[in-house]
Design a protein around this nucleic acid. Sequence first.
RNA 1: GCUAGCGUAGCUCAGCCGGUAGAGCAGCUGAUUUGUAAUCAGCAGGUCGUGGGUUCGAGUCCCUCCGCUAGCUCCA
Length: 653
Amino acid sequence: MLKVHLPDGSIKEYSQRVRPLEIAAEIGPRLAQATVAAQVDDQILGADQPLPEDGDVRLRILTAKDPEALDVMRHSCAHVMARAVMRLFPDVQLAFGPTIENGYYYDFDLEHPISEEDFPKIEAEMARIVKEDEAFERVEMDHAEAVQFFGELRQRLKVEHLEDGLKDQRQVSFYRQGEFIDLCRGPHVPRSGLIGAFKLLSVAGAYWKGDATKQQLQRLYGTAFFSKDDLEKHLKQLEEAKRRDHRLLGRQLQLFLIDPAVGSGLVFWLPKGAVVRRELENFLYNELIKRGYQPVYTPVIGNVHLYETSGHYPYYKDVQFPPIEMADGERYLLRPMNCPHHITIYQSQPRSYRDLPLRLAEFGTVHRFEQSGELTGMTRVRGFTQDDAHIFCTEEQVADEFRGCIEMTQHVLKTLGLDEYRVRLGLRDPQETKYVGDPAVWEKAEAALIGVCSTMDLPQLKIERGEAAFYGPKADFVVTDCIGREWQLGTVQLDYNLPSPQRFGLEYIGPDNAPHQPVMIHRAPFGSFERFTGVLIEHFAGAFPLWLAPEQVRVMVVSQKAEDYGREVQRRLAAAGLRVSGDYRAEKIGAKIRDAQLELIPYMFVLGAREAAEGKVAVRDRLAGDLGAMPLEEAVDKLQAEIQNKTIRHVAK
RNA sequence: GCUAGCGUAGCUCAGCCGGUAGAGCAGCUGAUUUGUAAUCAGCAGGUCGUGGGUUCGAGUCCCUCCGCUAGCUCCA
């Protein structure tokens, strides 16, 4: 006897095996028609998968209205895509085809290189399959049978997976839809007619089982929604994301430049981009001073010996620019990180426990030879400047210092309106042996970090075992940008490795007059100015808040008759510390306004004979439009207040 | 690094089956002196990413390299 509890509180009883779809049909034929999948207790199952014969289950019939249903449908759509590809290219070898955020993909091994020109053909075939509305049929068989079965179908990747990843499974399931059969855990929609609007998006290479030493497959990406409207909305969003791409805006707004003639991944900050960076630097600098950090400056290259001591060389050799060899055999490395130089400062004199914590900060430029395929605008480059600092402290101070770092990062993100982020607390995997240091110390440090995090307001704190660096646990701030992409920006990392006797052997003299080993904390709220600015450009769609705007005000005259007054106003604005330019061209005011609007200038001061006579300025707000005339002093105060408060008036969503 | 696609004026793009390069915007010059998102006219601007090949002839076809884009792998 099976008791089925439905969401409305009603209970149905069955003495025979029953499937969710049958229960839906009992409730009503329209519900049965609309059934996409079922939630049985906490599991999403196919609507045709039988329920247990007895006991109690909670059952939810999922339709297009339920968010969980979308994933099921997309997975089915991936199958339909694979089926379509197989119809067009019968010799295709199937790999994996899961759903992902916003869509799905399927990996194929196929001679013919799939290009976008093939998409319409594939989509047309998919439409045919959807229209045929055949059932997805779940079949289970035992492992040996499945190996033989897929062997006969000559799906060698499936066989390989059965014999490798699934070798411990006694039973496996597959799904059949017409002539198409695929090894698959499911669940799937009952029939292909439930698949709504879909579209193929892109094709790219992907390694079999994510292993770069294995063969490369063709990965076909697509998306699907229940309604055409939802699909359109999603495609619009992709367009919007393209529009605010920092590489595009960076060029349009003349913020930065990357010239392949100089080198890939090497960033030029143009005057306007440099203003943004300088403001960010000033902001951070003030925060650092407030928090007891001491700024230092150190060289951007160093003797290779230093990096041999730190362990970075030759271990990370393939992501470094090769050493510079001098005639006398000396070798220098373009520094890939700043810590060894800060350690050099720590070691430059004997340290007492009274000196700790010692917080050394530097906007340190580093170089890493990232693989060519990794480079992306400002967010992944080969030369970048970290807002770096290293804290040297006692074990007892770790928790407080860690808290301070988290707080500063939170403050910084909040000031910039980056409200959507999560914190990843990376701890060690106790099963692993790759970690350095005493397990007891790790234990203590991790407990301290968890303790600190639990008392703080950290959105979506996620503890990830095995995600620690080999030298210590860490907290990463993962910020979500407008496109929904996640960026690892800020980071706080504990380090028990570099201070250890095997590395630099750092010491301080404790109250007991004996030497002790300090703990190091690496931290960078932005990560790097390059990546952070790139993300900010997209976040604000190029329209920076007033305090960051490269050009804050543009003075423009209605006709050249007002030029003298305009220049006077411009001079006074500049004297008041505002970043101002003037437009005195023989253009109509409409054209000047249009240009300033397109350049995303926050404020325009429109000046003509009237303003000149009254000593006023007509203020135009980029967002709100004409604010009318006001005395110059009043306008200056208004702008300065907005700058002072670092007001974020508008984040284009 | 790998796979695929792309590379034409400062920018966005057109250029058919191979016949010797075109538009808009920006720029420059001149006229216009204008009241809240584009005034008009003229001028100038390109070894078609690089090197090679096929051809009477290559922006167009083939190969090489470089770069960019998407994804994969990587990210101290």
